[in-house]
């Protein structure tokens, strides 16, 4: 602002006011507009994330069925009933078991695949696209086809087993066998996707490190362990967390594997937590379903927290 001799008090006063206003607008712009920029996300998050979370908590404190207009407040009754419910703990065990069976091999395999693809290869793009193909397949198609492969009487896998003189396995009947079958479906669908994430991270690792290691005589495996893994740790943490959350929410695979058996097999041998919620939801017992949802949310928080600590602690030796 240019400084001039004020012509009069009124004018000076006006100018000061104008300055103040400008300052205010400027302040508002600096302090306020960022909120406007991020508002779309937070509004959507509130509508589709925070509000359902809070409302579910509210519903879980009631005896709430859909067809009745009266929702009786019952406090924490749903939760105490849940903690004494064998089927709930059974579903929790199944979820953890399927989660571990699918996630651990998946991540190891994904790192290995990414490592293989991270060197100069012919038809590189082809291989990378192929990796992603399983992931763009519809989950329904995947489960239906794998259910046939795992068929008891006419399934491909039992047929192959029969070459080695093994008896056919009733994959759906057993607890372990059904968990393996479901884990294989998840493994098949998600390994490539995670491998691509790892590959992207690996491409950012400076080449010189590998060159130096090669000169020092380090083998491919040593390079993977001592250079690659430590350098892509942030991505590993990310992938571990997203896979864990995904594993906690498995629904479509067990539901379709049992051809719409809401109990996840006659003995609930592969009923996951999500399926347990769905079963109670279709019984229109919304209060109880909401309580299970909240327990699942707490489980995810705990499991992700533990994972985060574990993956953070496992520091590499890159110095």
């Amino acid at each position: 602002m240019t400084v001039r001799v004020p012509a009069g008090a009124a004018k000076r006063h006006g100018r000061v006011r104008q300055g103040l206003r400008r300052q205010l607008v400027h302040q508002l712009d600096v302090k306020g507009s960022p909120y406007a920029y991020v508002a779309p996300f937070f509004l959507l998050f509130c509508a589709f994330g925070l509000f359902p979370l809070a409302y579910t908590a509210w519903v879980s404190l009631h005896d709430w069925t859909l067809l009745s207009d009266v929702h009786k407040f019952v406090g924490l009754d749903n939760f105490s009933q849940l903690l004494g419910d064998d089927y709930f703990w059974n579903a929790t065990f199944n979820t953890l078991s399927i989660g571990i069976l699918s996630t651990v091999p998946q991540l190891l395999l994904a790192i290995w695949l990414a490592h293989l693809l991270n060197r100069p290869l012919r038809a590189q793009t082809l291989f990378r696209v192929t990796l992603l193909l399983p992931n763009v397949t519809s989950v329904v198609a995947v489960v239906v086809i794998f259910s046939q492969l795992f068929g008891r009487d006419f399934g491909l896998i039992n047929w192959v087993l029969s070459w080695f003189g093994l008896d056919p396995i009733d994959w759906q009947a057993g607890t372990a066998s059904s968990h393996i079958a479901i884990s294989v479906m998840i493994l098949w669908r998600w390994t490539g996707y995670n491998a691509l994430l790892f590959l992207a991270a690996m491409q950012a690792v400076p080449r010189e490190l590998y060159e130096a290691a090669t000169i020092d005589g380090a083998s491919g495996y040593t390079q993977l362990r001592k250079i690659t893994v430590p350098m892509i740790k942030p991505t590993i943490v990310f992938v571990v967390i997203t896979s864990t959350i995904g594993a906690m929410q498995i629904l479509a695979e067990p539901l379709l594997f049992g051809t719409y058996s809401l109990t996840g097999g006659p003995d609930r041998q592969y009923q996951t937590l999500s399926l347990f919620i769905y079963e109670n939801f279709t019984k229109l017992d919304f209060g109880y379903s909401s309580a299970i949802s909240w327990m699942m949310f707490l489980f995810i928080v705990v499991v992700v927290g533990v994972n985060y600590l574990l993956t953070r602690r496992s520091r590499g030796n890159l110095t």
């Binding site: 198609a141 239906v144 046939q148 006419f154």
Partner: peptide, 18 residues
Amino acid sequence: MLHPPRRGLPRLVAHVWT
């Protein structure tokens, strides 16, 4: 012998699609 089932898959997929 391997006998790939013929009708199950399209039927279920059709159901789920519908």
